[in-house]
Design a binder for these strands. Structure first.
Lengths: 201, 201
DNA sequence: GTCTATAGGTAGATAGAC
DNA sequence: GTCTATCTACCTATAGAC
């Protein structure tokens, strides 16, 4: 089935906003990619800001849903870590521009924007995982680490390599296929790294 | 001593470019912050692009020098990890906008820009640390991990929490002072986390 | 709904007086 | 070196025909 005009606009806006950021994005380029004209863009979304919000909100909700799905799974901690790393790196590799997009817009638009955005329904909620980590510590099954710190470590290890891809490729002088291959191997390595760090001696 | 006009310009440009990014930065705002007028800005730096490059190159060189200093230190691996985490988190906390700035510009301007930029003299060189890790593995003193992956993990754990500060604060509902305090505590925690992960059982 | 044309505003860059 | 004034280009947004 043919995509509707609105779908074509959103798809085009996603690509342009995510790759260039809000300020550098051009309504003309979005119109061109959607194969319509600028006037029609404003007919559907009255302003650049409104179109941006539509794209950003969707990306943020997708990001949140993907992450919460694993946070909430009712499985043992070590399995959950493995699943989290595997699924989350896969999700990020499928949308490699998303993390840099979300991070830089949140940084640029100031804390007011971040606050407003994070007050919505669909947002990351690490509490189930935090609680699970606390239980494991209380039961003496893993080392006594800061639970929030551990969740932050898991996220850092998955997201940063995607954010830093251009820098990493430049410094290490590796081609894109080799980079992709390394990320694939990292799924296993990162899970082992985290589990080794918290497993009781 | 009074700062020269050029110093005032660079200082103002740093603040504006780092917080807003290239596209959203305005020459007018830079002029205002430097307490001069737009015309004079163009007298010193003929274009916005040239001014941006001056700021970016300086930030990138500073970033690289700080990191290389620890990569090259001739001390035992576990000590080096502790020093790296401590110093690098401190450096980042003193320039909290720098990582997001460098990362997003490298992502937005495409791989050509990244390639060109990374071909300069002062750039991050993790090879001394990679070699040291390989030696430790060969000597059987740490677990056999991917050396490049380990360096990437160290960087991820230090940089990502700074990049994600607005998101982290929003999700965890913590104030700025509490966030700063958590980052301070992380210096110790992250070093222990990494060492636990690679120490032989 | 979709197009063309254009209004209205703003930003980077230049000219020229002092 | 520093200023004011202005040019030129571009971009968002609107008006109006079809």
């Amino acid at each position: 089935m043919e995509p509707t005009t609105e779908e074509k606009i959103l798809e085009a806006a996603r690509e342009v906003f995510m790759n260039k950021g809000f300020a550098a994005a051009r309504m003309q380029e979005i119109a061109d990619r959607a194969e319509i004209n600028k006037g029609l863009l404003h007919y559907y979304y009255r302003s650049k800001n409104k179109l941006f919000r539509a794209v950003f909100d969707e990306a943020f909700a997708k990001f949140s849903a993907g992450i919460n799905q694993v946070f909430e799974a009712e499985i043992p901690l070590f399995e959950k870590i493995e699943q989290f790393v595997d699924r989350y790196i896969s999700l990020l590799m499928q949308n490699p521009a998303m993390p840099a997009f979300v991070i830089s817009e949140l940084n640029q638009k100031g804390d007011a924007f971040a606050e407003e955005l994070l007050s919505r329904q669909t947002r990351p909620n690490p509490m189930p995982l935090v609680a699970q980590i606390q239980q494991e510590i209380a039961a003496g099954r893993i080392k006594p680490v800061n639970p929030i710190g551990l969740v932050l470590n898991m996220l850092s290890l998955c997201v940063f390599p995607i954010l830093a891809r251009p820098m990493f490729q430049g410094i290490m002088e590796v081609s894109r296929p080799v980079y992709d291959q390394m990320m694939e191997a990292r799924k296993q390595e990162v899970a082992e790294f985290i589990i080794s760090a918290i497993r009781k001696a």
